[in-house]
Amino acid sequence: MRITCPHCGARDAQEFSYLGAADLQRPEGMAASEAAMADYVYQRDNPAGVHRELWYHGAGCHAWLVVTRDTRSHAITAVEVAKARKAGAAA
């Protein structure tokens, strides 16, 4: 596979490591429930089709990326920098 890193350009997938689903929200703070945290840690969908997932460009710029990939064909339709997603939420 090839992943087009927004910083580094198209690179071989060997430069990246895979983590998993990209859109999980960590239950933050002291008020978070154990049940919600258990879901966050363990519950995953296993879609046959479009999947938004996290990849880490460890052999490149160290950016965490959100890659939109079709699990059936490996076709990649979008790559975004994960950090940019919450940029508007900066304190």
Binding site: L54, Y56, G58, H62, W64
Partner: peptide
């Protein structure tokens, strides 16, 4: 060493990008 670096980058970039 590598695993912790990756973990910290995850915590910062994915969980708490608002941290300076």
């Amino acid at each position: 060493a590598g695993k912790v670096m990756q973990h910290l980058e995850f915590c910062h970039q994915v969980l708490w990008p608002e941290l300076d």
